[in-house]
Amino acid sequence: MNNIEQQRFFSRELLDWYGRNKRDLPWRRHRNPYYIWISEIMLQQTRVDTVIPYFNRFIEKFPTVESLADAPEDEVLKCWEGLGYYSRARNLQHAARQVKELYGGVMPSGKEEVFGLKGVGPYTAGAIRSIAFNIPAPAVDGNVMRVLSRYFLIEEDIMKGSTRSHMEELVMQLIPEGRASDFNQALMELGALVCTPKSPKCLTCPVMEHCAARLEGKEESLPIKTKAKPPRPEYRVTALVEGTGEYTGKVLIRKRPSTGLLASMWELPHISVAQDGGAAVVSLPDEAAMDKLAGDLKEEGIPIQPVGHFMNAEHTFSHIHWNMRVFKCEWRDAASNNLYAAESAAAYDVSSRVVGAGEVKSASDVQFRWISPEDMELYAFPNVFLRILNQYFSSK
């Protein structure tokens, strides 16, 4: 079989298989470009089963581009809470504002216009244009590169830009006329369900007969992919500050800066302890860790007295791995407790901004709140802090 025949066989059998086996996914029930765009952003580095309930809630709350563009950022982040990679949500809202301002709220279909939206890369642009508008465009993600590497025996590193370009050109040759939407979805579906990273289900694959990697016994060794660097470990000490007086039963949280990692989300106050050039948190005795936590947070104007270890927690980002030790802490009023100098105007000024849920006061770009379990519905937390808070409140 020559190369052209191999390509025709692949496209024909793949589309026939997809017609019989495609999953009923909520974003496949229509060709709404906005919904398809949301689904593609959510599906980045996230399993389909995880995305489905998030997608349904998101489009219910923000059914149009305009509703997303006009929503408060905190509401968007809260709706995204638990899905991870929160920059996706912020970029999505920024892009919705672009669509509203530049295109009257109508999702564009042109290559340059779609690619110009915040957070839309080559794959997402190709997916939106092909799936929503049936425009022949390559949508090459990890699933697609795995399928193509195996079927066509492409023994090139898929982390290289030249390999991606090669595969994009190949996809353009494979798309049958008028079938761009179905073909790209079929290619992704095959990679997700059959041509899986480990233990591919070759015996049920519709293109098994002419898969070059299977014929040479290389289906499990492809694709070739340079290993990414492991995430950098960071060690952190965290304060679970329990309120007193009118705030008894509540916990202190703070808002992260509006830029950078986990921007604008809420967290428990915590500090970094250097791995090199300082004692790592894993080996720092409790007393020393608590002293450092109290001292560092005092400089932020958070007057606390750590009283004991509560739990350990970990969280992995794409490039960082947080190792966290969490200590219960008591609130100490900077104006009345001798442990913290009331003469410190800065400390008193900041601590006076720590307010109850619903009140809005800030110290520069940092905001503080006292929250109860019921108040958690008002704020978006990264997963690691959700776990800590849920464990704490459930223990009460």
Rank of each mutant, 00 (worst) to 15 (best):
E330Y: 07
N32D: 15
G356L: 03
M265Y: 10
V355D: 02
I41Q: 08
N56A: 06
E359K: 12
F9D: 13
K111M: 09
E246Q: 10
I128C: 10
I371R: 02
C202W: 10
A180P: 03
I253M: 06
I59P: 03
A192M: 10
S181C: 15
R387C: 08
G260P: 06
K22W: 05
P53G: 11
S67A: 14
Y54L: 05
E113A: 15
P223H: 05
V355S: 07
C202V: 08
V237W: 02
S165G: 04
A313K: 05
I304S: 01
E156T: 14
W17R: 09
A137D: 00
V194A: 02
S162Y: 06
R179G: 01
Y392M: 07
R232D: 00
M265G: 07
Y18D: 12
G142R: 09
E113C: 06
R164V: 12
A335K: 03
I175W: 00
Y151R: 08
V99Y: 04
E5F: 05
Q6M: 13
D349C: 06
P33H: 06
A341Y: 02
S351G: 04
I271T: 08
L102Q: 11
G191Q: 11
K361C: 00
Q173A: 11
E66P: 00
M290Q: 11
E101Q: 10
L25M: 13
P53R: 15
S181R: 09
R256M: 10
Y235N: 14
G308D: 05
V106F: 05
A137G: 01
G126R: 00
E81S: 14
P373N: 09
A139Q: 02
M1R: 00
P269I: 01
A341V: 02
P306S: 06
T124E: 03
H270D: 06
T204S: 15
L293N: 03
I4H: 01
P176S: 08
L14Q: 08
G356W: 00
V281G: 13
R90G: 08
K227V: 12
K298I: 03
A71R: 10
V237Q: 05
V237M: 07
D333R: 04
W27D: 11
V194N: 06
V144A: 08
S364H: 10
N21R: 13
E156N: 15
D49Q: 14
E216R: 14
Y54H: 14
L222W: 14
Y340N: 12
S165F: 03
A89H: 08
F381G: 07
Q173N: 11
E40W: 01
V144N: 05
E75S: 15
V350Q: 01
Y235S: 15
Y85K: 10
A357D: 14
R146M: 12
M107G: 02
V251K: 00
A96H: 02
H30S: 15
D375R: 00
Y86S: 03
S149D: 10
Y35G: 11
Q391F: 03
C205V: 11
R29A: 15
C202N: 14
P382G: 07
I320L: 15
T163A: 06
D365H: 14
W331G: 01
A279Q: 10
R28Q: 11
T64E: 13
A137V: 08
V106T: 13
A239D: 02
F62S: 09
S362N: 12
E359W: 02
M290N: 06
M311S: 13
L83I: 07
